[in-house]
């Protein structure tokens, strides 16, 4: 069994990330606590995915520190991530979930029950035996969600999970995310679909060119945006840092 050490709060302290000559993120100070979903917004290239990868511990910051529940150890304990294009392991949908359960340290004897439960949560009971790679795009994304939830996360990181999905599939994914949030899972999700942000967000982080430009509760962000840049972004203008 894995240690029950918590992954929250997730803290970014003065974090910068450099790749070659490019500064992908600079001077990020951010604390993610349990609560309503936090949505990362911003134009393409603003650093949303990079921030999520740091939050997951997949990359280490160049400067500053990322900590989980106060610990700098990047090994995932109670966090999980859903990628924009998740990798389906070359086995059945059910076996994909068993794989995640196994590597989350879940005891073998509860696997069948957990698999059934997870498939039910994402509405994929009927494809348990189907090869994961043969599923439709939306089904794959839901299976990946179930796989992430198999880790019983405190915090779930999502990188534009509906970017390639049609509205019906998008709605299915959003419902699962909202259900997870309602059951107490902290959601940190990147999106560039403002409609989706309005539907899901309790809190919004606005990133521009690698900087955290504004962080506010969702209704404040949408009703009373503080800076001209945010206002321009909400109007639909192309924003870039000058």
């Amino acid at each position: 069994m894995r240690a029950p050490a918590p992954d929250l709060p997730l803290m970014f302290e003065n974090v910068s990330l450099r790749a070659g000559d490019t500064l992908l993120l600079r001077d990020i100070d951010l604390i993610i606590r349990p609560g309503a979903p936090t949505l990362l917004v911003g134009p393409n290239g603003a650093g949303k995915s990079t921030l999520l990868r740091l939050a997951m511990g997949l990359v280490a910051p160049t400067l500053g520190a990322v900590t989980w529940g106060g610990s700098p150890d990047p090994a995932p304990r109670r966090r999980a991530m859903l990628f924009q294009r998740p990798v389906m392991l070359r086995r059945s949908a059910g076996a994909n979930l068993i794989y995640a359960l196994k590597h989350a340290g879940v005891a073998r004897d509860v696997w069948p029950a957990r698999v059934r439960d997870l498939l039910e949560r994402v509405g994929l009971e009927h494809v348990a035996q189907r090869p994961a790679r043969k599923l439709l795009g939306g089904e794959q994304q839901r299976l990946a969600l179930a796989r992430a939830l198999a880790r019983d996360p405190e915090i779930l990181l999502l990188d534009e999970p509906t970017a390639n999905l049609d509205p019906a599939a998008t709605r299915a994914v959003e419902e699962i995310v909202l259900n997870a949030a309602a059951s107490g899972v902290k959601i940190l999700m990147a999106s560039h679909d403002l409609g989706q942000v309005r539907r899901l967000a309790g809190e919004v982080c606005f990133l521009v060119a690698g900087r955290l430009h504004e962080k506010a509760a969702a209704e404040v962000f949408f009703q009373h945006p503080q800076s001209p840049l945010t206002q321009a972004f909400l109007r639909g203008d192309l924003v870039m840092e000058t």
Binding site: A75, P76, A80, Y99, A100, A148
Partner: peptide, 16 residues
């Protein structure tokens, strides 16, 4: 290359 992020996110050990 394809699996790296996903496996790291699932906490898969090197041998596995």
């Amino acid at each position: 290359l394809e699996y790296r992020d996903e496996m790291n996110a699932m906490g898969v050990t090197p041998f596995a």
